[in-house]
Amino acid sequence: MSEKCIAVVSANYRKAYPVIKSVYEMGFKVIALFYKWSSPIFSRYVSKRYLIANPYVNEKRYVNDVISVVNNVKPLMIIPIGFIDTLLLSKYKQKFPSNIIIPIPEFETITYVSRKDNLVKLCERIGIKYPQIYSLNEYQFAPTGPVVVKGVSDASKPEYVFFKESLSDVIKLKNKSFMVQDFVPGVGCGYFALAKNGSIIVDYTHVRVIEEKPSGGPSMLACLDFNPELIFLGRKIVKELKWTGVIMAEFRRNIETGDYYLLKINPKLFWN
């Protein structure tokens, strides 16, 4: 294409739509890559649509398909939407033309922050609080409750256990890649940033107004909230990791002490 354009991959995610709309409103042509057809395909903001391989089925074919589209349309930038897009584009970044901007961290950085057990080490280095965790051999020494049982990977789904008597039953259903973590009573909040090599381009915070469950989980309603303390903590993370691209750090503010605890880091675009 002779006109300036930006590629969005994978555009089948719901959160791709506001990205597509924003790119269009900034005056760029939008090239949307889908690994399955979904509603954004009908958007009037999309100039061209391409079907690519499913990255969960064949990652090398997915990467080759993206490279083929890139070589054809020559976009100024590729914006990855899902975690799998961010992960694979980072892993194979050297295969893409060097003049195309791909705003993502190094592959090793993404895999590092995607494991929640690594976050403990990160928090210890930079002085951020993290909920007490218990390993496979220690969970029986966890407090009476409540606790959170979660996997260590990005795709983990936490379970909340409010009585110690129920903990063993939950543990039996888990594989070995899990951890038991103290539950932090309080309010969920998040730090969001776009950065380059650890330098902030733009950042902001939000606070959760309504969560799916009183114990935590996805937010149903959140609002912008200028929080200097949270911004200070978030910027420490970005600087320490020398982060490039978007990042979301999820915290929980202890309602009793007022302390902020880091729960997870999302190395991808976020739906909020």
Rank of each mutant, 00 (worst) to 15 (best):
E159Q: 13
R208P: 11
K239V: 03
A195I: 05
V202Y: 15
L262F: 03
M248S: 12
F163Q: 09
G190F: 09
M248G: 05
N137V: 12
V170L: 01
G198L: 10
D203Q: 04
W243G: 01
V207W: 06
G145S: 12
L136Q: 12
Y160R: 13
E240C: 00
N175I: 06
G198K: 09
L241I: 02
V148W: 03
R208T: 08
K213W: 06
V246M: 06
T205R: 11
Y260W: 11
V148T: 00
S135C: 04
G186L: 04
V246H: 00
E211M: 13
T257R: 00
K164N: 05
A142V: 06
V209L: 15
G151M: 06
A142C: 09
R208I: 09
Y204V: 12
N227S: 13
E250W: 04
L136V: 11
P185L: 05
E211D: 15
L167F: 03
Y260H: 11
F141A: 06
P158F: 04
V147E: 03
C189L: 15
L136D: 04
E211K: 07
E159F: 02
S177E: 15
V184E: 01
W243N: 00
Q132K: 15
D259R: 08
S219G: 10
P158A: 15
V147P: 12
S168E: 13
V238C: 06
S219P: 05
D154M: 07
L224M: 13
E256G: 01
L230E: 08
L167C: 02
G188W: 00
F251E: 03
N175S: 12
C223L: 13
V238E: 06
D225H: 15
I237K: 00
P158L: 08
P185K: 07
G217D: 06
V147C: 13
M248N: 10
A155I: 08
V184Y: 13
G151V: 07
V161Y: 11
N227T: 09
V202S: 15
D182M: 12
I247S: 07
K239A: 08
P158I: 07
V187G: 01
Y204R: 14
G258C: 13
E229G: 05
E159K: 15
D203A: 13
V152N: 02
G258D: 14
F163I: 08
Y134C: 01
D182A: 09
